[in-house]
Amino acid sequence: MSFTVNKLTVRSSADLVAAVPYLLGFHPSDGSIVVIASRDRRVVFAARGDLPTPAHLLGEFTAHLVPVVQRQQPITDLILVGYGTPEHLDPALRIVGDALTTAGLKVREMLRVTEARIFSLTCNDPTCCPADGTPFDPTASLVAVQATVAGLVARPDRAAVARCFTAGDSACDSIRGATDSATARMEAVAAIGSAAVFEAGVLAVRDALRQHDNGVRLSDEEVAWLSVLLTDRPVRDLAVDLTQPHDQHITFWAEITRRADTPLVAAPATVLALTAWRSGDGALAVMAAEHALQVDPGYQLAHLVLHALQAGLPPTAIEEAITRTHRTSTRNSDTADEQE
């Protein structure tokens, strides 16, 4: 089996398990169930969920999971990988597998990872799937080497994903004064008209991305000005349009989210979520959208992104809506300025 992106080649169950953290972006913890969907032996979708407790909530878990997987069609087969003890995982894996099969999906293999051993719930051949499991060392796998060479990262856990875009108290303190000045500047520009705000946003977003692409770190004043401008929806939507789905721009928006004054985090965190989503980093996308909503529970675009991610929709579903909204907002802005 080979992955569509970066052509990581999987030749065994051990290789597949070693690849999972690179598919997700982090190492799954015990209690995780991972669903991997393939199309003609190429992985096209991977998702992770926490096994619900108490166990009777597993029905709700599968009711949500099945339609998400079905939306990835066409797919040819699925692999389930669970992490934890057999008492906890084996019954759950079988229930999830049965639900997917009942929905018309082919579950090719179910694996459980317990400590450093892999157990198959679908293979009874002791020559390839011994009862005491197959030992594996993920760091020694060829997949891990290929992933490292390709620049893929498997963070230790979900908390490590969050640390790339969340700030400490000292970082928040250092930006506050710059944000106050940027807010006053924004008020002066807004008094001229919405077109002036948008023009300032175009210049700020393009200049910030250019500096980052050239390896220049933005000053606190530049971060503050950009984060204040992003509170204007047309500017935020322009930022989405100008951002490219690659690692450099993920790093850029993670930095802006981490350094922005807390009340202004929702917009850059949502742009980060969209950029990560378009780049195939679903874990980072979900956590960035959740972070935006922690700061501003009513932030509509973050809600839309999170719901779309949870439903397994492609990022184009949101991008098209943003493009339409951005064009409408721009036209309305021009009309308002003419009326002034």
Score class of each variant (00 low, 15 high):
G151D: 02
A336E: 13
A188E: 15
A204N: 02
L264R: 08
A336V: 10
I318A: 00
D125T: 15
D132E: 13
P130L: 02
H27M: 13
D296F: 06
A336R: 11
Q244N: 03
V153E: 03
F3V: 12
G201D: 00
T335V: 09
R259A: 06
S38Q: 12
S181Y: 11
P138D: 08
A14N: 04
R117F: 05
F198K: 09
D15I: 02
A289C: 03
H212G: 04
R94Q: 12
L238Y: 14
R217V: 15
F3W: 10
V69W: 06
L58D: 09
G31A: 02
S32A: 13
V43C: 05
E199I: 05
A204T: 10
Q146T: 01
A167E: 07
L203D: 14
G49P: 01
E255P: 00
E60L: 09
L111A: 01
T231N: 11
L230W: 05
D247W: 07
E187H: 13
A103P: 07
A239T: 09
R236W: 06
D261W: 10
A184I: 10
V235Q: 04
V68I: 14
G151M: 07
Q310F: 04
D281G: 06
L306A: 10
V295I: 13
A239L: 07
R155V: 03
Y22V: 09
L238T: 04
F165A: 01
I79Y: 06
P315G: 02
L89I: 15
S333M: 15
T4L: 12
T323C: 06
V10W: 01
A140V: 00
R185I: 03
S29A: 14
N332I: 12
R41T: 12
Q339L: 13
T330C: 05
A273M: 04
L230C: 06
V153Q: 07
R41E: 15
T76S: 09
E340P: 00
V149L: 11
D77A: 04
M186R: 15
D90V: 04
M186S: 12
G133P: 04
H249Q: 05
A204F: 02
V5M: 13
L89N: 10
R42E: 15
A116W: 06
A159E: 13
F198M: 13
A208V: 02
L226D: 02
Q73G: 12
R163T: 12
L100G: 05
L121W: 05
A184T: 11
T62G: 01
G151P: 02
V145D: 07
T148A: 11
G25I: 06
Y299D: 00
I33A: 03
D207V: 09
S13G: 15
A171Y: 00
G59R: 14
T330E: 07
G168F: 01
A195Q: 09
M110E: 12
T231S: 14
T243W: 09
V143H: 00
C164Q: 14
V223H: 07
V216K: 08
A273I: 07
T62R: 04
P245S: 03
